[in-house]
Every structure is written in structure tokens, then in C-alpha cells.
Write a protein that binds this DNA or RNA. Structure first.
Lengths: 203, 203
DNA sequence: GTCTATAGCGGGATAGAC
DNA sequence: GTCTATCCCGCTATAGAC
């Protein structure tokens, strides 16, 4: 029907919000219906089960996660320039969806089986790391950076950029800051993290 | 009764396991009872509600989180030595309870109100940061480290040490490593992170 | 203190009218 | 496609015997 597509998108939008904030177990179908301003029964008409609906959201979110990093790595710029771009992109993306990291990691943690359902995502993620590793090794052989374990560096980039969002409530509490100060901290973080990483990599 | 205390401890131990793995919403009182090998009704005899039981666990876990860092900061060692000790302690502690960071952050995220119930914890956490800030500022004035935003540094230490555990399933997937390789990565991480931080702080 | 039995409800899912 | 009504299960919580 005419309204079909728009209703479906409407549901997906609402489900995204609710699942991201509450996670699978705590999310209520009623909440999703209320957020979408539709009848609860409609959720089952479009997506047969809660889990089906969740899977759609989860896959979408996970897939777009590091999609543009690959292209940055393949650009002609220097390694240090690329580091800055990647950090910037990561922080910028997550800042616009601050619940995303927590959502992804939490669900992967609480339901590891879900992951194995979508092999394609796994492949894309490890492909990303392999490119990253090659670049790091090339840079070191060329004498432009010091010897470094690519895995550790990869983990560090993720940790430095995503942790503030993962721990947002705790961070605000421990640092005694409000929303504005937190935003300011995030705005300054990109440069701070890039400087720190680059300085630690210089020969 | 005689069995009273041991049953209570038994319950707490079981509840810790289940809540840590599943989180509040997905955890089942039955699972806890089964894990503790007791009758489900007993849970309500000792702790009136699921939430009461959860609160006890949550508070315990959160409180012990950074308890020994304070004493490290107050020791007579140099700043760089302290950085190494803190990183080491953090990683070591979390490695022995890898679900802990995810548990804490997830519950703070999904139920921020719970936090306000226990003001003491908030105070201890911000006290920790204040000591850290003073130390950093003193070191900079003494010319022993370069100028650095204490908040950013604090966030970085946490992120670099805790992220690997928070993202463990994703990390294994992206880096294509198994449990053994992950453990090896963690063992090497303490030194890697310390070196990186110290190098970026040197004047 | 520990058990059995069961109340009571919240929430996912379906049937069927429109 | 959308609605109302309702089923039914799983789970928390309690009553009450032992």
C-alpha cells in the first residue's frame, strides 16, 4: 500500500532510537510503537518478531561503522595526515550518534551468536585491519615511523576515540562536568589524540 | 540461622556472575538461583527485590574500581613511574574480571538514575580525578612534562586500558585472533600503553 | 531458613474485523 | 495496511506449610 514504505521506515527509525538507548533486552515493543506513533500490532506485521527487527537495525549500524576509513587509508596522503583524518572522522561520526558504540559493543557482548549470522560484516572488518597493518609496516620499513605493533596501535586509535562516548555518564561524573563541558572536551579531543599518537610514533 | 550468612554470600556470588554477563534486564532470578544451587524463593527472602540485589552488586563492583590508584598517586615515586604502575594495575585488575567494565558502563548508560542513589561513589570518583589533576599540574610547572589537559590525559589512560576489554568480541573479530592471541596482546599492552603515554608527555 | 504452590503482571505475539 | 481484543508464556514476587 501507499503508506507501506513510510510506515516501515518510520518503524525502523523508532526502533533504532529505542534499541540504541535500552539495548535488546530492555527495549519494549510498545515503546517502539509509541515512538513511531503507530499501533503495536503493526510492528509484527512488518517484522515478524522483535529479534528480526533488532537484527535489521544492528546490521545497519554495525556495517556503516568504519566504512570511510578504508578510503582514507587508500588516499595519497602521508601516514600522519591519514591518522589525523581517521581520528577526526571517527570522533565526528560517533559524536553524531553517541549511543552507537555502547549499543554495538553491548549487544556483541551479551549475544555473541548474533554475530555469526552475518559473515559479511566480519570479513569487512578484518579486511580493514589488514589494510591498516600493511600501511603501518610499509611506513616503518620506509623509516617514517618507529617500530610498532599494528594491533596495539589499532586498539589505541579505537580506544582513544570511542571510550569517551562509551563511558559518557561515568566521565561526566568523575570529571564533574556538564553536557556543555563534555561537548567541548570532545571537540578538542580530535587534535589531542592525533598529536599524542603522532608524537609517540615519530622516530 | 547457621546457613544464613553462607547462603547470602552464595547468592551474592551467583548474582555477581549472572548480572555481569547478562546485565540487569536480561538477567533472570531463576538463573541466579540455579547458579547458587538454591530455591528461587530464597532470593526474595534475603533481598526483597531483584533491584535490591542488583544494587548491592553494582555498588560493590563500582566502588572497588579504582581504589588503589589513589594510593599510587600519593606514593613518593616519579610521575612516569606512577603512570606505569597505574596502567599496570588497571589492566591487571580488569584482566581478572573482563566483564566488569562492560557491566558498569552498560548499566550506567541504560539506567542513569541508579547512579544518583549512591552519592558516596560519585564523590570518591571525582576526588580521584582532582588528585590526578593536581599531580599533572605540578609536574608541568616543575618542567618535567609538557603542557597537557588533565581531563584528556585521564580519558586516554582509561580508554587505552579498558577499551580492549569493552570491545573484546569485536577486537577478536576485526583482528582475526583467538583467545590465546588476545591474552598475549593484553599481556604486552601494559608496556605498550605506558611507553606511548610517557613518550607523548616528554618535554 | 527453606520449601511448594501460585498469584499477578508485563510483554511478545496472533486472530480476525474493518 | 491498520485496528481491537486477546491469548499465553515467562518472570517476579508472595503466601503459607514445614
Amino acid at each position: 500500500m501507499v503508506a507501506g514504505l513510510s510506515t516501515e521506515l518510520n518503524i525502523l527509525e523508532a526502533a533504532r532510537k529505542v534499541f540504541m538507548q535500552k539495548g535488546f533486552a530492555a527495549a519494549r515493543m510498545c515503546d517502539i510503537a509509541k515512538t513511531a506513533n503507530i499501533n503495536p500490532a503493526l510492528l509484527h506485521y512488518y517484522f515478524r518478531k522483535k529479534e528480526k527487527l533488532f537484527d535489521v537495525i544492528f546490521e545497519q549500524e554495525l556495517d556503516g561503522f568504519h566504512s570511510d576509513i578504508m578510503s582514507i587509508l587508500h588516499s595519497g596522503r602521508t601516514f600522519f595526515e591519514n591518522i589525523r583524518l581517521i581520528i577526526d572522522k571517527d570522533i565526528q561520526k560517533v559524536a553524531s550518534a553517541p549511543f552507537l558504540p555502547m549499543f554495538i559493543l553491548n549487544e556483541m557482548h551479551s549475544n555473541p551468536e548474533r554475530m555469526q549470522r552475518s559473515l559479511g560484516i566480519i570479513q569487512r572488518h578484518s579486511a580493514l585491519f589488514n589494510v591498516f597493518r600493511e600501511v603501518v609496516e610499509r611506513e616503518h620499513l620506509a623509516g617514517r615511523i618507529r617500530a610498532v605493533c599494528p594491533q596495539q596501535l589499532f586498539l589505541s586509535i579505537w580506544g582513544l576515540t570511542m571510550f569517551p562516548f562509551l563511558a559518557q555518564p561515568m566521565v561526566k561524573m568523575a570529571l564533574e562536568i556538564d553536557d556543555q563541558s563534555f561537548d567541548a572536551l570532545i571537540r578538542e579531543r580530535s587534535e589531542y589524540v592525533s598529536d599524542m599518537l603522532i608524537k609517540s610514533l615519530q622516530v
